[in-house]
């Protein structure tokens, strides 16, 4: 798995570079979403060690909780079972400032974690079991939520909300309702700096009720069994 991931990263970074060059010739253009370079590229290439990751994660569990279950209030997401690629993307984006997170940054910045530790934490979290029955919504708009999810979300995030590790699309099934609601609002309203422009375009017309409906639907999807940690 590591080998194809490495090849894929190499290809995608080359492609990203080419695209950036082409854009440069055209006289500057939109930045590439999730460009794989710098410490993000480094952390993705490094082999993570789940045991070391468990040690490094101790400093994170004051907020994300033991077992990385997060908080039903939506203040902190569940991280257990998330794709390692997505976790590396998000941690490095928060460090680079592409995703603004002033609360978390002092606990994950360069003086706290090395790129190796980011890789270690990511592989550790990916292998953690996903707890059932996390924060849910009011449950009164689930039909509408399903309709929106099937139409707009499932192409990328998967029919069961399982995401796609190699494309950096997160596992969303079983995430805390309030966290999903907050982040989809941020993405719709242009407040999440590293949002995928394709997703911004899709949910731009969503009303608050639409967001609540789809977040509630996703929060109730049963998360798949944890991926292997290596």
């Amino acid at each position: 798995m590591k080998a194809w991931l490495g090849a894929l990263l190499l290809l995608s970074s080359l492609a990203g570079g080419l695209r950036a060059q082409e854009a440069g010739h055209d006289g500057g253009a939109a930045p590439v979403w999730n460009e794989i370079k710098g410490e993000k590229l480094l952390a993705l290439k490094l082999r993570g060690d789940a045991a070391r990751g468990a040690e490094a994660f101790v400093g994170c569990q004051g907020c994300h909780k033991r077992g990385a279950t997060g908080s039903p209030s939506g203040a902190y997401p569940r991280l257990a079972g998330q794709h390692a690629t997505v976790l590396i993307e998000q941690m490095t984006d928060i460090r680079s400032g592409r995703r603004q997170n002033a609360k978390m940054l002092p606990f994950a910045d360069e003086h706290v974690l090395t790129p190796q530790e980011i890789a270690d934490i990511a592989i550790y979290l990916q292998g953690l079991p996903i707890p059932p029955n996390l924060g849910k919504g009011p449950g009164d708009k689930l039909e509408r939520g399903k309709e929106l999810f099937v139409r707009d979300c499932s192409t990328c995030h998967g029919e069961r909300g399982e995401g796609q590790a190699e494309k950096f699309y997160p596992l969303v099934a079983g995430q805390h309702f309030k966290y999903l609601l907050r982040e989809t609002e941020f993405i719709r309203d242009g407040r999440r700096g590293n949002a995928n422009p394709d997703m911004v375009r899709v949910i731009k017309p969503y009303t608050d009720d639409d967001l609540e409906a789809v977040a509630d639907y996703i929060a109730r999807l049963e998360a798949p069994a944890a991926a292997p940690s290596q």
Partner: peptide, 14 residues
């Protein structure tokens, strides 16, 4: 539990 509003982590974490 910490203080989620002000971003104080739970002391118990460490």
């Amino acid at each position: 539990d910490g203080n989620e509003l002000s971003g104080v982590p739970a002391c118990a974490g460490c």
